[in-house]
Design a protein around this nucleic acid. Structure first.
Lengths: 135, 135
DNA sequence: CTATTTACCTACCATGTCAATAGGTAAATA
DNA sequence: TATTTACCTATTGACATGGTAGGTAAATAG
């Protein structure tokens, strides 16, 4: 299951994509629109900043803004960043120790195929694919 | 991430599918072959019995046996049984409370499409698809 | 220069799940 | 009767989840 971190992050990104571009959007407003605790969103948004997905600006008139155009974000990279990995099993994470049973494992090729399918799907979808068509 | 419950259950089912059909296979042997704690496997196997995937027989000469032919099991039903759900988000579980934000939710249709793709994949794969071709 | 607004940071916490282990009882066979 | 096997309940330690509390730093408006 995708945790709230990944799901909320996606909603924040979509919220930003729907605001007038080029202006900073205060987290307070995002929290209100999305009906998510602002305090909790802070930790999520911080991670998005670290991942160079969005940029923050302090002080009056500050807030957050997208670093790229909405169509340049794949849903997969946002979710992957927040969840730490998209791998369905530990054996397929980037830092997984080589498994001695891997050679004869009946399930490994299956999980690999599953992993590939999930990644292809999530990385093929862009932020704009989740937004209403006309502006 | 798929938990060990789902992954181990799949390995147990495949192990049974690879043994001579029609004979009861002791859990001790499965645990040894799969290198999984027999004690832990007990809880997994119990769930498989409850789900009518396998059948147990006590006493000497006892063990576990498949209820159907290997090609009649979808991987998805095994994993779904063990994990409780295949849904990627809580909103899409069978017992989910209706969400008041569902109508305007930008992400719900996306997660629904994701869910459908995952289910289609997992239910299209049969046990025999994970086994070596010739016997 | 002061007040306000905003981002940004560290620490903490309650709850639940995961992955087991411990220690049995019941059933079937040799 | 002894042995083998399934089957059952309870417990545990570690960790992740989904937050909250209470600040500091930066930027702007007045």
């Amino acid at each position: 299951m995708i945790s709230t971190k990944g799901r909320y992050a996606l909603r924040v990104m979509l919220d930003l994509a729907e605001q007038p571009q080029g202006t900073y959007v205060p987290l307070k407003d995002i929290a209100a629109r999305q009906e998510i605790s602002k305090k909790y969103l802070e930790s999520i948004v911080r991670e998005l900043v670290r991942g160079k997905f969005i940029k923050g600006s302090s002080g009056k008139g500050g807030g957050y803004i997208l670093c790229r155009r909405p169509e340049e974000y794949a849903v997969g990279e946002i979710v992957e960043r927040m969840e730490g990995t998209l791998a369905p099993i530990a054996c397929l994470t980037a830092d997984a120790a080589p498994c001695p049973r891997a050679d004869g494992c009946r399930t490994l090729p299956f999980w690999r195929a599953f992993d590939t399918m999930v990644r292809d799907f999530l990385y093929s979808k862009k932020l704009t694919d989740l937004l209403p068509p006309a502006r």
